[in-house]
Structure formats: C-alpha cells, structure tokens
Amino acid sequence: MTREKLLVETAALAGEIMLVSGAEIYRVETTIQHILELAEGKQGENVVLSTGIYLSLDDPAGEAITVVRRVSDRSTNLNRIDLANNVSRKLCTGKLSIQEAYDQLLVIQKQEIYSPKATFLGYVGTCCFFAMLFNGKLYDCLAALLVGAGLALVMGAAKKIRLNAFCTNVIAAFFVGEAALLLQAFALTDIHRDTVIVSAIMPLVPGVVFTTAIRDTLNGDYNAGMARMVEAVVTALAIAAGVGASMSLFQMLMGGSYLW
C-alpha cells in the first residue's frame, strides 16, 4: 500500500469509528480533514452524512484516491470516540506513524471496556436513579430497579441474537410496560405507574440523539440533522408502540377500565 492509500484508509477508519459511536458530524469531518492534510501537496476533501462517509485525496498530477464507507448500525460509545480522537491527535502531531495509527484504530474499533455484568449494573442503576431524579418515592425506585434488571436481560438477549434496533426497542418497551403494570397490580400497589415506566425506558429513549440532531442543524449540517431527528422519532415510535401494546394487552387480560 502506498503512503497516500494508507493515509486515506486511516482517515476513513477514524471517521467511521467516530460516526458509528455517535460523534457530531463536524467533529468527524474535522478529524478526517486533519488526517488528510498530512499528505502534502494533495487536495483532501470529505463529506460526512449520518449514514456514510465520502472522502477523496486528489493529486493534481495524477489520479485521485476515493473511499466511501457506508455506516449502518450506530450506538453511542464514548470510549471509542475518546480513543479515536486521541489517536488522530497523536498522528497529526507526529507522535505516531500512519501504520501505527491504523493498527491502533483497528483495535479500537472492536474494543469494549465494560463486561456484561457492568452493563447490567448500568441498566439497573440508570432505571433506579432516574426514578429518584424524577422525584419518585422509595417504592418507585425499587420498582424501577426490578424492571431495570429485567430490561437489562432483555437487551442482553436481543444483542446476542442480533435483533435490529427497532424490534429491540419495541420488545424492550413492551416488557417494561408489562412489568410495571404487573408489579403495580400484584406486588407494589402504591407505586406511580407513570414514573416507573418513564424511568425504566430512559436507557432506550432518544433524548441525546434528538439534541445532537439540533446541534448538527445549528452547525449547518442540515442533512445529518434531519436524519438524526428522524432517527429519534422512529426510536420514540418504537418505544411508544411497545408500551402502548403492553397496556392494551394488560387491559384485555384484566378487563374493565383499569387504566383509563
């Protein structure tokens, strides 16, 4: 591989990792641009959309190198953003050679720092403490904790069988709704159903995606902004459909006007 080709591959890989991990578009674009600028005397350009990366390194004297990367599943991973950012920073200040940077990025692309157990704790803690944040009473926190533990198991199972994001959200939200309703009906009767459900779906809801969408829009990345906004709405739709279905089922099973 020539030096230019390797440089383009490195830039594409760094950009891909950051985009998949949920970095803002302007951050991905500047990172790629900085890496491309290491090729002296050549014109590097890149366009990043939320679903893909296009970059090219144009040599006025010869042929241009162009790389396109399609990005499909995105999930926020702050660790990878941090590490990829570090590598590109070191590469641009000359502390790493291009080959070293490329090898490190390949490792980063697969890296996971928390074990399934820690992630499980994360889900349980998030649900429980969000109930506390939403001014829930002790029983609400307890109920959210129990529902959160179940949610973590559902998410783990969905990841194992590689279910797509939409179906995962529907099923997880359905489980959350059903679990909260059953808890209220049979175990902890004085919980606030709404607080428990809203706390327990917090790990799923697209609040950050929606806010990033508006930030991208303000930055002038209108394409990515719109795409992320649609992503947020679709995710919310999946969750609401799941919870709505769980309530309808519960209504059918219990009969009467138990819920509304």
């Binding site: 803690g125 506390m132 790990p203």
Partner: peptide, 23 residues
Amino acid sequence: IRSLGAFLAVMSFGLILELPKKY
C-alpha cells in the same frame, strides 16, 4: 436528593455508553 439521583443515574448510564472509567 434528586441531584444525587442525577449524579448516580449519569454514572450508571456511563456504563451503558461505555464511558471510560477515569471520566
């Protein structure tokens, strides 16, 4: 109490978002 809840909730969510331990 609610701010403490937020502190703990954000730390827990950090585990889901793969936030490095040092942060």
